[in-house]
Amino acid sequence: MHLVPEHEDTPVMTAAPHASARRRRGRRVAGLATVSALALAGCQGQVSNGFMPQAISDSGERVTDLWVGSWIAVLAVGVITWGLMLYAAVRFRRRKGDDTLPVQLRYNVPVELLYTIIPVFMVAVFFYYTARDEAALTDNSKTPDVTISVVGKQWSWDFNYVDSDVYETGVHTQLTGEEGTREQMPVLYLPVNQRVQFVLNSRDVIHSFWVPAFMTKLDMLPGKTNRLQIVPTQTGEFQGKCAELCGAYHAEMLFMVKVVTQEEYDQEMKRLAELGQTGQLPVDASREELVEGDAELIPEPARTGSN
């Protein structure tokens, strides 16, 4: 029998596990670096707009600029704050031989003034730019090229093309998961690079007109008319929806937006006229007035508004 001296096998038993652990850590770090590189590569082209959706309207571009500017300011403050925290942690760390606590101060007037004035200044700047952009987004003083009356109803949309004196009416889009659902949605046509004024009304409850790609939405209130002007800057098909909880089928109150050339827009107006969809649908009518038989089911005080 051959016995290995105790002092000879000790290095062999201890070195291998440490080397294996180092290799595993190296593989994990390499894997994380690879995943991070792929994630950053996938995000290229979106950093400039703050990872927001691509804006397809003048209002969307303004909202994107406000978003990016806000993030730059917030990150700058964050970097300064983190830097000061790190400096304090390193500069005033406890060292060997320090048996007593550092001097404890109850207040520091310059520092307190600093962290009071700077936040107030930041809030004022944010308020100024937000108020400025909100005023621009809700400005309706410019003369529109196209006027479209949008009527919200549970749970669909009507579109009156005022200038062409034609309309499109929609019905509730039922999301069954089957193909062809998008074809059931009402379609709103808009000419590209033309200023469109939306005249917004509701027939029943509060709705909200929202096209996410426009990055702008506005509520539709019963008995009140709201207006919104937008210039679509890119052709294509985009999703529209209601952004205000309006009942059981709120999630299915959908429509499609097609931003097309002026020629295609004129062709669509002609097509609607040929279908006999001329004139304008009422915007102030209630459901009881539009659906036969509903009025008899509602008590007279509710219909007249009396007590």
Results as ranks from 00 to 15, higher is better:
residue 227 R to Q: 12
residue 242 C to I: 07
residue 219 D to M: 13
residue 204 D to E: 14
residue 215 M to L: 15
residue 212 P to W: 02
residue 241 K to G: 11
residue 223 G to V: 08
residue 198 F to P: 00
residue 236 G to C: 08
residue 214 F to H: 03
residue 239 Q to G: 13
residue 199 V to E: 12
residue 203 R to F: 02
residue 225 T to G: 08
residue 203 R to Q: 13
residue 240 G to D: 00
residue 231 V to W: 00
residue 233 T to K: 07
residue 242 C to N: 14
residue 228 L to I: 10
residue 224 K to W: 09
residue 232 P to D: 06
residue 244 E to S: 15
residue 237 E to H: 14
residue 232 P to L: 03
residue 223 G to Q: 07
residue 244 E to H: 14
residue 239 Q to C: 13
residue 207 H to A: 06
residue 229 Q to L: 03
residue 212 P to I: 07
residue 215 M to V: 04
residue 215 M to S: 05
residue 224 K to C: 05
residue 227 R to P: 01
residue 214 F to C: 03
residue 199 V to I: 12
residue 222 P to Q: 08
residue 229 Q to A: 03
residue 230 I to M: 09
residue 227 R to E: 15
residue 198 F to L: 06
residue 235 T to F: 05
residue 227 R to W: 04
residue 226 N to P: 04
residue 211 V to G: 01
residue 205 V to I: 15
residue 202 S to I: 02
residue 208 S to M: 12
residue 238 F to P: 00
residue 238 F to V: 03
residue 232 P to S: 07
residue 232 P to I: 03
residue 237 E to G: 10
residue 219 D to E: 14
residue 201 N to D: 11
residue 198 F to S: 02
residue 203 R to V: 05
residue 234 Q to E: 15
residue 232 P to M: 07
residue 220 M to G: 00
residue 223 G to S: 05
residue 213 A to I: 02
residue 233 T to C: 04
residue 203 R to D: 07
residue 199 V to H: 08
residue 199 V to N: 11
residue 228 L to A: 05
residue 225 T to F: 07
residue 214 F to N: 00
residue 238 F to K: 01
residue 215 M to H: 09
residue 238 F to I: 01
residue 226 N to K: 10
residue 232 P to G: 06
residue 225 T to R: 12
residue 226 N to I: 02
residue 201 N to F: 04
residue 226 N to T: 06
residue 221 L to S: 11
residue 217 K to W: 12
residue 221 L to P: 01
residue 207 H to I: 04
residue 224 K to S: 13
residue 225 T to A: 06
